[in-house]
Write a protein that binds this DNA or RNA. Sequence first.
DNA 1: CTAACTGCAAACACTTTGCACGCCA
DNA 2: TGGCGTGCAAAGTGTTTGCAGTTAG
Lengths: 164, 164
Amino acid sequence: MQRTPRSAENRSAIAEDARCIFERHVRDRKLKSSKVRTELVRNIASLSGHFTAETLQGRLDPQVRVSKATLYRTLGMMCECGLLISHEFGQGALFFESSLGQAHHDHFFCVDCRTITEFTSPGIEAMQERVAAESNFELTSHSLKLYGYCAACGPKRAAAAQPR
Amino acid sequence: MQRTPRSAENRSAIAEDARCIFERHVRDRKLKSSKVRTELVRNIASLSGHFTAETLQGRLDPQVRVSKATLYRTLGMMCECGLLISHEFGQGALFFESSLGQAHHDHFFCVDCRTITEFTSPGIEAMQERVAAESNFELTSHSLKLYGYCAACGPKRAAAAQPR
DNA sequence: CTAACTGCAAACACTTTGCACGCCA
DNA sequence: TGGCGTGCAAAGTGTTTGCAGTTAG
């Protein structure tokens, strides 16, 4: 499953949805809104793909200028209200992805080029439910990562191993 | 699946196996052995359950005195030669577990009491293989974690939510 | 006018690294 | 006897927090 990059119209619709969800979260918690935060949320939510706090800096509209502190604080809030999903891939930093307009999915991680790709497997999901139920474990979330060589790096590696 | 704690005889057999595997690793890489390291490897390999570098300190034989630097270096080597498996549970520190005498398994993580339990699901494993093959992804490893409330915390939580 | 937001820099937790010295092959 | 292992302390990395000033409701 390859994710299609978001179109411009799509992105602005998503940004708007994100703003609404975030505003509700802010209201519920009796927090305050702010120009910086609103723009930041719109920006982040409309990104496609996976990013870290670090790589995020380079992908924001140049006019959105935020400190690392605010960035991390906002990322945290967006995770709390479900706008972002975070993942660990053993790379030190957390990876985030916008959840809006995204069906649930799991990930491949190429240990060579570090590319993250997505897949879905209803069968695996169903079996997870079953396994959890059998153990009286009340499932709230899960994380499935498959590590290895992607379709590009696998052959490349095989060729390098046998240079003849 | 509950892991049975290791018996004393079992632990010493495992410690011995671990030593052999580690020695081979050392030889292959033209490194050197040392008293500290050998004892550390025997100790760590015979532990049952999951531990972090931090909690490990308290579980070693009191006579094994090592610096954090050596501890981390040894943990790294043990992972390289397959004696240890490491896991991230989003808790900051890496968790390790000895792999000797252990079948492959995946994990439940209780978000309340933070207990780690294990399970196996050949069905899930098989489906992972299939999904990877379909994407021409060459699988080398995987990580599946189910988060939620364990059999003890689930009911406890339900009761607290409705105190009547 | 109060409480939350912001940026900055300092603090933090976990892990890695540089270095001087000791020990193994 | 050369090179690796060790401990110590310092450095690193990613993230969080305290604080003084700013802004929203």
